[in-house]
Every structure is written in structure tokens, then in C-alpha cells.
Amino acid sequence: MSIQSTLPSGQIVFDPRGSVTAATVTLAPRVGSLDGVRLGVLDNSKWNASRLLRRAVALLESDVAPSAINRYTKDSFSRVAPADLLDRIAAENDVVITAIGD
């Protein structure tokens, strides 16, 4: 509905939500195999996330033998990662894993 509309009764009502401007973003191509990939590990700095990541990386190291493991840490688990950090991760890795954990 538009921001102002009229009910069948003739009464005027307003939509308080505001529009959302969104762009369609396509997913990056999937890697066919994890063997030998450059693996990025983004630690969001929350208490239990690093535990989960350590275990996940240990399993990946034994299962798929990444050619490199690159580790990154967010300054704050709640703030969005800086754009330059995201660009670095994208440039230096084939896949990236992250985790949250309270």
C-alpha cells in the first residue's frame, strides 16, 4: 500500500513503516571441492565462537587439507566488519567460515 490509503469506509489510514530500498545480490560461485582451498577463518571475537571455530578448523585440516589457513578477527562481535577487512578476506581466500556463539 502507498503511505496513505483509503479504506472502503472512506477513512484515511497511513503506513508507518517506510519503504525499503534493496538491491539483489547473487551468491558467489560455489567451490566444487574443498581440497587444497585457501581457507579464511573470521573470528567475530565472541566468547564461544572461537571455540566452535577451533574445532571446525581442526576437522577441516584433517579432512580436506587446505593449502592455507588465514585467520582474521573482528574488533567487535556486534559491529559490522570494516569493508577493507571484507575485501582482504575475499581476495586472500577461496572459502571463509565464521561463527557466532554467546
Binding site: R17, G18, V20, T21, A22
Partner: peptide, 9 residues
Amino acid sequence: RWGNLTREV
């Protein structure tokens, strides 16, 4: 949600 807050909204 990133809703657009115009003056009218």
C-alpha cells in the same frame, strides 16, 4: 530492517 525514514514517516 533499514526502512527509509522520511519526514512523512
